[in-house]
């Protein structure tokens, strides 16, 4: 495989997962917010925060654009502005449409590595998004639309699983998907869990609130988990350490580790994976103070960034890597 392709196939996996995760996040959070759920202490802007965006700046711009009432958006207008930013705003680097273009760009660049069936699915996905996501939609349509986005992302993965050669490209695609997923799970925890807990020296309270698990498609399996654990556990244990749940950090790390084994730079990738795994294993999560929990999440986020860099390291310094190979 071309060295250059490493980056593109990895990003293909990341963007595909991001598309799926963004659609899930929109739907789960919408349900939560329109329910006026008793646990809810959030407004729509939290979605922007999860995706690492500056909600004040974005909504400030949106407010300025609304006629009349300068500087203040109604709840309905806030919802509209946030959804536009997440789905179709031209200037948004996290929108569904932006992610889809990035997906298409990467797929195009490595077209020869992609089986025809998967290429057609990716194409259909992009066409669907261009046709359906470019205009604002009602809540009810939005729900259908986001479910369809998720479903189509799963179809791409399914087709790929059934047709793609078990090659380094396949491994890198899967690594990309699981790095992105771990990243998204961490973001959701960071914003939606930690913002509820001021950093203190006292032992953290049990986290009984399970609604955010909706965003991760994990409510039912969480009930199963709680029912079968001897120790006293909560949603934080579940999202971080329960390796049977495919959206937990532990699961994603296992998958990255397994997929990295065949790569020539597996050693440096696995090193990052082990470091992250030991972060999770060496702490009894229930015993942490809220401050320690904050710091743990910070460390995991930093670890995921290092992992990402280790995966792309050969592409970052192509000339150096070539010289090294030559002398070897």
């Amino acid at each position: 495989m071309l060295l250059k392709s490493v980056e593109h196939i990895f990003w293909l996996g990341r963007y595909l997962e991001r598309l799926d995760d963004t659609a899930r996040l929109i739907n789960a959070t919408s349900h939560l917010l329109i329910d006026s759920h008793q646990d809810t202490q959030f407004g729509w802007p939290i979605l922007l925060e999860v995706l690492g965006q500056d909600s004040k700046a974005i909504l400030g711009t949106a407010a300025a654009a609304v006629d009349g009432e300068q500087g203040k958006l109604s709840v309905a207008d806030t919802e509209k502005a946030v959804m536009a930013y997440l789905i179709n705003a031209a200037d948004s680097p996290v929108s569904i449409l932006y992610t889809s273009s990035a997906l298409k760009y990467n797929a195009r660049t490595i077209r020869p590595l992609i089986p025809r069936d998967m290429w057609e699915e990716l194409n259909a996905l992009d066409l669907f998004l261009q046709q359906n996501c470019s205009m604002a939609v009602s809540r009810q349509q939005r729900y259908q639309l986001m479910s369809e986005v998720s479903r189509r992302c799963q179809m791409v993965v399914g087709v790929l699983d059934g047709t793609m050669l078990r090659s380094e490209a396949f491994d890198l695609f899967n690594i990309g998907r699981h790095v992105e997923r771990a990243d998204m799970t961490t973001r959701i925890m960071d914003v939606m869990v930690l913002q509820q807990l001021q950093p203190t020296q006292i032992k953290r309270p049990k986290f009984r609130w399970t609604s955010i698990l909706n965003a991760l498609g994990g409510v039912e399996s969480y009930q199963h988990y709680v029912a079968h654990q001897a120790a006293d556990v909560d949603a934080i244990d579940y999202l971080l350490t329960y390796a049977d749940f495919p959206r937990s950090i532990a699961y994603c790390l296992n998958r990255v580790g397994a997929s990295a084994r065949g790569l020539p730079h597996s050693v440096s990738i696995l090193q990052q994976v082990y470091q992250l795994q030991s972060l999770l294993q060496h702490q009894a999560l229930a015993e942490l103070s809220t401050e320690q929990l904050h710091s743990l999440i910070d460390h995991i986020q930093a670890g995921i960034i290092s992992l990402h860099q280790a995966i792309l390291a050969p592409c970052q310094a192509p000339l150096a890597a070539q010289t090294q190979q030559k002398s070897a």
Binding site: M1, L2, L3, K4, S5, V6, R111, P112, L113, I114, R116, E168, L263, P264, P314, P318, A321, Q322, Q324, Q325, K326, A328
Partner: peptide
């Protein structure tokens, strides 16, 4: 065509010439 023939699709930056030999930059080196 690259896909149909199962060959690499390279741009000029993927190729180097050394001692009159042409080399492809791959994940496994030249």
């Amino acid at each position: 065509l690259a896909q149909q023939m199962g060959i690499e699709l390279a741009e000029n930056t993927d190729l180097t010439v050394e001692d009159d030999g042409v080399y492809l930059r791959t994940l496994h080196g030249r």
